[in-house]
């Protein structure tokens, strides 16, 4: 008798615990969405830090650009489609901002193809995409370190007879607030308008 009683009780206990566990799980699924268009990555990633060189060939670190909302993007200047489209879109998003807000945003374009992208070439490339953009690069270990920090990677294809090769890289834009905290991950399918909305919200929340 007692055995049966105990068995029934363990069934009830396990059923209750299962219920609690499922409630906890659904609690995790609930989104506390603010109305960001990008994906909120607060707390998921470390703050902005890097050691690279800029398009003047000087070494720079994350602090050199602090105090502004920063958009970090990995690419390479020979990139046929993804990079120009993304940079064009970012330029569109920032140039549509009110003039006072424009200087509050900075795009950091990190070339992961240091073999071909010399600082001069990088400078020429980023100038084409507006004023508030900085071209950065580094040696491969520095770039690997930065990519790993932001959970992304890049790779090189075999060069063709002319020496051209494709580079695989992240298509996302990482947005950091003025303090350098990671805030948003912008997928490439967002429009310039949607990105601008998020930027304005980020600029205004801190000032």
């Amino acid at each position: 008798m007692r055995t049966r009683f105990w068995r029934q009780r363990t069934n009830i206990i396990s059923a209750t615990l299962t219920l609690i566990a499922s409630l906890l799980l659904t609690g995790c699924f609930a989104n506390d969405e603010e109305d960001w268009n990008g994906k909120n990555i607060s707390g998921l990633m470390p703050e902005l830090e890097f050691d690279l060189i800029n398009s003047q060939g000087e070494s720079v670190s994350g602090e050199d650009y602090s105090g502004r909302v920063r958009m970090l993007f990995f690419g390479f200047t020979s990139c046929p489609d993804v990079c120009p489209t993304a940079l064009q879109k970012l330029n569109q998003a920032t140039s549509g901002l009110a003039p006072t807000l424009q200087d509050e945003v900075l795009t950091l374009f990190v070339s992961v193809d240091p073999k071909r992208d010399t600082p001069e070439r990088l400078a020429k490339y980023v100038d084409f995409f507006g004023d508030n953009i900085v071209g950065l690069t580094g040696n491969e270990p520095q770039l690997r370190e930065l990519a790993k920090r932001y959970r992304t990677t890049f790779g090189y294809d075999e060069p063709d007879p002319d020496g051209n090769y494709a580079v695989s890289h992240s298509s996302a834009i990482y947005v950091f607030d003025r303090e350098g905290n990671p805030r948003l991950l912008i997928r490439p399918d967002l429009s310039g308008e949607e990105i601008r909305h998020d930027l304005v919200a980020l600029i205004q929340e801190d000032s």
């Binding site: 069934n11 396990s14 059923a15 615990l17 299962t18 566990a21 499922s22 799980l25 995790c28 699924f29 989104n31 994906k39 990555i41 707390g43 998921l44 990633m45 470390p46 959970r151 991950l185």
Partner: peptide
């Protein structure tokens, strides 16, 4: 029952698209 729930539940949990996304972004 709990063991089964945990075993299958964890697979579903980490493969839930939004959670999977976060898990791959956060170290």
């Amino acid at each position: 029952f709990i063991a089964l729930f945990l075993f299958v539940g964890l697979i579903y949990f980490w493969l839930w698209p939004s959670i999977h996304f976060d898990a791959m972004l956060s170290r």
